[in-house]
Design a protein around this nucleic acid. Structure first.
Lengths: 169, 169
DNA sequence: TTATTAATTGTTATAGTATAACATTTATGA
DNA sequence: TCATAAATGTTATACTATAACAATTAATAA
């Protein structure tokens, strides 16, 4: 089987351009297994499979899209099956929720300790979402909040727009 | 009729503490009327009433909560009634969507020109949401994005936590 | 090992959020 | 006043998420 190496719109992830996505998937699953083991959390078959499906690509995926695929593999699969797995993955910080889309995306850098919340750039054309490592924004937001006497517990930062590859076209 | 002037949790808005909320409502409706007139947009009865209901307090309100009230006044009111009004108000920048709650909140400073997106502090205890005027966060986010070649079109920034009045209690 | 307990998954039902599609009415301008 | 566009009425349905209880599986202690 021959794979085209041409970069297409759909291949964009962050500023990295085309990439071998199999590596992303393997990395994510390896990190997940390691973290869960370290924490004594059980990455069951279902949970692992849901994580894998979320990592199908770099676009946020809805719970019912996950369910659609899962149903082909497990006749039993129902909404709670997916939502429970998502709850687990979210709690472990392996997955983030994209609020603006009621969808979910894999975290490429799950924190060994904390369950961080991400900062995302979401392309309105190709649909890919990139998580920024940026911490300055967080700090600035914290400062602005504390100026109002407000203490932040969690936050959502999502920017929609056009990624590099989708701008000219 | 005697009104208590005691500050309660529910009265908190931003760092302003207790306030006469009637002023908030009148201000919001006045600004809305002025802006719409200036733009040739029609602030119909329904739209005006929905805006007023959103301004009932400083907590984000869901579409179906609005509908519940509206139904008492208009037998006809149905989901599209509310969602159409919301679409209009959002487009005019008179209302913001709170993504983390699938809810809506009035904009205290609707931009005469642009339909800006807000930055919100949302108290998990009293439920009040405050819109920050902060522009530094926006700029920082834009810079981070452009470092990735990404051009932002719209964004969502919502922080959840405890407001001043709800921290000690 | 086996009994006990806790965690996970199965299953059904329903709550909550949002829009599609087409009919009717109301406002606006020619 | 007619023609057109905008707004609203109306019904149906799609999409997102959780409640509640049963059954099963895994972990732990006796």
């Amino acid at each position: 089987m021959i794979h085209s190496k041409k970069t297409t719109k759909r291949d964009w992830v962050g500023s990295a351009g085309s990439h071998d996505h199999r590596v992303c998937i393997v990395d994510a699953l390896d990190k997940a297994a390691a973290l869960c083991s370290q924490r004594g959390a059980r990455l069951t078959q279902i949970r692992r499979r849901v994580l894998e499906l979320i990592w199908s690509n770099h676009r946020p995926i809805g719970a019912y899209s996950i369910l659609e695929v899962l149903k082909k593999e497990r006749t039993n699969a129902a909404p709670p099956t997916v939502y429970r797995a998502l709850d687990f993955l979210l709690k472990q910080g392996l997955v983030h929720r994209i609020q603006s889309q009621n969808a979910f995306i894999g975290c490429p850098n799950p924190d060994p300790n904390l369950q961080h919340t991400g900062t995302f750039l979401i392309c309105t054309d190709c649909g890919n979402a990139v998580e920024l490592e940026e911490t300055k924004i967080d700090r600035l937001l914290e400062i602005s909040a504390s100026n109002q006497g407000f203490v932040i517990e969690s936050r959502t930062i999502e920017a929609a727009g056009l990624c590099t590859d989708c701008q000219v076209n």
